[in-house]
Simulated scan of single mutants.
Amino acid sequence: MSSDEDLFAQQMADVTPVEVKPRVDLKTGVGKSTPGEKRRRQAAVSSEEKPTDNYLTANHIPPVEPLAVLAFQREGVQHGVYRKLKRGNYELEATIDLHNMTVEQARVELFDFIHQCLEYDVRTALVTHGKGDRNLDNPGILKSCTALWLKEVTEVIAFHSAQPRHGGVGSVYVMLKKSKAAKEQNSKNYRPD
């Protein structure tokens, strides 16, 4: 009687190994950028002036508790679209971190960021504002400001506090209106012939 190894070798005698090709050609990915990276690079080196008509409220900000969930949806935003945003299921095309900024710095940076997103047809972004005071007794100042400011930008159609993997209640997903060019392209793509 033969051992298990002998029996296995006998059964496998006529088997030829399958040639395995690598799944990803790492050489072709080197130096290539995603569309989001290209837009951010263009925005960073753009010689155009930043918008100077910042209309975001500078004072009298209603306080928001540090652990509060931020949620906002303009009329007309489909519930399924909002639910997908809330779950963090959209690709984040741009991000900004407002940590360690003064209220005025954050006001200017967020205003510029939103307008750059609009300029480059960014639909979903992540704004990290933090929760506020570490002892959680005081309202989060930048969180409170962000909640108000995003509502003041008419092109912001919805926002919701992020999932834990993206910063939880210290960050917010933002959805922006589709640009006119993007709407026309979408219409062309889905127009019945």
Results as ranks from 00 to 15, higher is better:
residue 3 S to C: 09
residue 4 D to W: 12
residue 5 E to T: 09
residue 8 F to W: 09
residue 9 A to L: 12
residue 9 A to D: 10
residue 12 M to E: 11
residue 12 M to S: 13
residue 16 T to N: 09
residue 18 V to Q: 10
residue 18 V to K: 11
residue 18 V to I: 14
residue 23 R to F: 15
residue 24 V to I: 13
residue 26 L to R: 15
residue 28 T to D: 11
residue 28 T to Y: 09
residue 28 T to F: 05
residue 33 S to K: 14
residue 33 S to P: 03
residue 35 P to E: 04
residue 36 G to C: 09
residue 36 G to K: 06
residue 37 E to R: 07
residue 40 R to H: 06
residue 41 R to M: 12
residue 42 Q to R: 13
residue 42 Q to G: 09
residue 45 V to L: 13
residue 46 S to D: 15
residue 47 S to F: 10
residue 47 S to E: 14
residue 50 K to Y: 10
residue 53 D to M: 04
residue 53 D to L: 09
residue 54 N to Q: 11
residue 54 N to H: 13
residue 56 L to I: 02
residue 58 A to D: 10
residue 62 P to G: 08
residue 62 P to V: 11
residue 63 P to L: 05
residue 66 P to Q: 00
residue 67 L to G: 00
residue 67 L to I: 00
residue 69 V to C: 07
residue 69 V to R: 14
residue 70 L to Y: 02
residue 75 E to F: 15
residue 75 E to S: 09
residue 77 V to M: 07
residue 79 H to C: 10
residue 80 G to E: 13
residue 80 G to C: 08
residue 83 R to M: 12
residue 84 K to L: 07
residue 88 G to C: 06
residue 92 L to R: 07
residue 94 A to N: 07
residue 96 I to C: 01
residue 97 D to W: 01
residue 97 D to V: 01
residue 98 L to N: 01
residue 99 H to T: 03
residue 101 M to K: 13
residue 101 M to Y: 10
residue 102 T to H: 05
residue 105 Q to A: 11
residue 106 A to L: 03
residue 106 A to F: 04
residue 107 R to T: 02
residue 107 R to C: 05
residue 109 E to I: 02
residue 110 L to K: 04
residue 117 C to H: 02
residue 118 L to Y: 02
residue 119 E to D: 11
residue 119 E to S: 06
residue 121 D to N: 11
residue 124 T to E: 10
residue 128 T to A: 05
residue 129 H to S: 05
residue 129 H to W: 05
residue 130 G to R: 00
residue 130 G to V: 01
residue 132 G to W: 00
residue 133 D to P: 04
residue 133 D to S: 14
residue 134 R to N: 08
residue 134 R to W: 07
residue 136 L to V: 06
residue 136 L to C: 11
residue 137 D to L: 15
residue 139 P to L: 01
residue 141 I to F: 04
residue 142 L to H: 07
residue 143 K to A: 00
residue 147 A to V: 01
residue 148 L to G: 05
residue 150 L to K: 01
residue 151 K to V: 06
residue 152 E to R: 05
residue 153 V to G: 01
residue 155 E to R: 11
residue 156 V to E: 03
residue 156 V to L: 02
residue 158 A to L: 03
residue 158 A to H: 05
residue 159 F to W: 02
residue 159 F to V: 00
residue 162 A to T: 02
residue 165 R to I: 04
residue 165 R to Y: 10
residue 167 G to M: 00
residue 170 G to Y: 00
residue 171 S to Y: 05
residue 174 V to C: 03
residue 178 K to V: 13
residue 178 K to T: 15
residue 180 K to V: 13
residue 181 A to N: 13
residue 182 A to T: 09
residue 185 Q to W: 10
residue 185 Q to D: 15
residue 189 N to L: 15
residue 189 N to H: 10
residue 189 N to Q: 12
residue 190 Y to N: 10
residue 191 R to A: 14
residue 192 P to F: 10
residue 193 D to N: 12
